[in-house]
Structures are given as C-alpha cells and as structure tokens.
C-alpha cells in the first residue's frame, strides 16, 4: 500500500476575477522510503497541490479529488481536528523561506518543543532532551544554546535546519519539502539537500521534493512528476525520464541543463512547441 495516493486532484481558487484552476487533474503516489520529485516552472501548482494534502489552503480554495489517501486512510474529507492529529506528526512540511517560516517572537527551542508537546506525551524535561537530539541530528552546532536563539539571530541555512528538525520531531512517515533550498546561498543549498536525503535514508520516510532544478532531480529522486500550468505532464522514474522524455516541456526542462547546452546559448522552454505535442497526464 502506497503511503500517499492522490488521484485526479483539482484545486480551484475563488478570486475577484472568477474561478482560477491552479491544479488540474494531478495524480501521484509515494511509497515509504521513496523520493518523489515534483518539477515545473513557477505557478504550475506544485505548492498548491501539496498544501492541499496538508489542508493548509485558504478558505477561498476548493479541493476535489477522486481519491486522496494517506496510509490507506481518506484525508480529503477529514474533520479539522482529525487532520491536526496527522499533520505535523505523520506528514510534515518545510517551506521555501526558512527565516519567514519561523515565528520571530519565539525562540526556536520553544517552537520545536511546542510540536512535541502537541503530538507526544513527553514531559518538559524529555521534550528538552529530544529537542537537543533533533538539533544535533540536523547538524546545528551547540544545540543546547541554540534552543534559546531567536530566528533573526540565525542564518537562513540554520533556520532551514531548525525547520527540518521541527518537521522530523514526531518521526513523520512523509516529509514534503517545498523548494527547501531556493532561498539559500548556493554553497548552503547542497548541504541542506544532502542533509534531507541523509535523514530520509536513515528514517525510511517518504520524501516529496518540490524543485525546479533538474540537476537536483537527477541527483536525488527515484521518480519524477512534471507539472505545467496546473496539469501533470508526465510521471516516470528518473532514468526513464532523462533517457526518453515523452513530453516537449520535459525535453525543454532537460535541455536547459548546462551539460545539455548546444552552441553558445541555453535553450529555453519557449524554444519548444508545447501546444502540438500530446501530453500524457491530465488533459
């Protein structure tokens, strides 16, 4: 049984200019221990579809799906209180802007212990202990002292490590990482990515990695989903995708990789005729 299974997910927003379909017929499944990458350009509905899984979309959003299950259990029509028992514990998520994702008014220690307090029955001392272990496991130096820091006293990379520690606090089965390195320095990006993969391998959890960096996909993912304008273009395991991409958009993404450059300029997505190519997913 797959960890997370989604069939034909659509998300629509009520906006002043009418309904906006941000996600249109996306299907995916993730197994335990698997790394699934979701790629696609900005605005293609990657974040929105994962926020739908987490139940974090604003009330203007309407989420529909033929099927959305976590460990075989329906999570589409979950009551808010039942959802809160899963979210943050069995499924957790980290975001693109690590500094903005942490509350500036509270110490990072408070913010991680709060998660433990919500989902476990550890006492104060045990929570502290566990927080120190978690900070240690994500490579934060001097964890005891770090617990007393405020987010603004830390770098972006350190904040993302804190976010990862919080996400892993209750031993989740699935971690969704929404462009976890985009906002970081290039030198830090690789460290964070390696950390995520290392932790994923150690814990055996499923990992959904949203990115628009094909190089990252090639290095990390088992399977890939390509999204374009809210629709799923293709789904394949990494080798297949890189060897024989079916869709023009995927080809465009791949040829934008530096090692595929021909001549003196990089091809862009605009060089490809997307309209006349049959798509495999959605439409």
């Amino acid at each position: 049984m797959a960890l997370l299974e989604i069939e034909n997910l659509t998300v629509e927003f009520d906006t002043s200019g009418g309904t906006l379909r941000a996600v249109d017929g996306v299907s995916l499944s993730v197994e335990a221990g698997e790394v699934l990458a979701i790629v696609g350009e900005s605005g293609s509905g990657k974040s929105v579809s994962m926020l739908a899984v987490m139940g974090l979309l604003p009330w203007t959003a309407t989420v529909k799906a033929d099927r959305m299950t976590f460990q075989g259990r329906d999570i589409l029509n979950l009551s808010p209180s039942d959802r809160r028992r899963i979210v943050g514990k069995d499924i957790s998520m980290i975001f693109q802007e690590p500094v903005a994702s942490l509350n500036p008014c509270f110490t990072v220690g408070f913010q991680i212990e709060e998660t433990l307090k919500t989902h476990t029955d550890l006492d104060r001392k045990a929570r502290r202990q566990r927080a120190v272990e978690l900070f240690h496991s994500v490579g934060l130096p001097d964890p005891e002292r770090r617990l007393g820091s405020f987010p603004h006293q830390m770098s972006g990379g350190q904040c993302q490590r804190v976010m990862i520690a919080i996400a892993l606090a209750c031993g989740p089965k699935l971690l969704i990482a929404d462009e976890p390195t985009t906002a970081l320095d290039v030198t830090i990006q690789k460290q964070i990515l390696d950390l995520l993969l290392d932790l994923q391998a150690k814990t055996g959890m499923g990992l959904i990695l949203i990115t628009h960096d094909m190089a990252v996909v090639a290095e990390t993912a088992d399977r890939v989903i390509v999204q374009y304008m809210g629709r799923q273009m293709e789904e394949a395991d990494v080798l297949t995708l890189f060897e024989s991409p079916k869709h023009a958009y995927t080809k465009a993404l791949l040829s934008a990789l530096p090692e595929n450059a021909t001549g003196d300029r990089l091809p862009t997505v605009a060089d490809f005729d997307l309209e006349n190519t049959p798509s495999t997913g959605g439409a």
Binding site: M54, R84, G88, S101, T118
Partner: peptide, 15 residues
Amino acid sequence: GEDYVRTARSKGLPP
C-alpha cells in the same frame, strides 16, 4: 498571511 502562521498550522496546532 505570514509564513510562520502557516508553519504553526502545519504543526497541527489548534486554531
């Protein structure tokens, strides 16, 4: 509308 409010909700905290 801030990110940290979304984070707080993603932790499964009560409203």
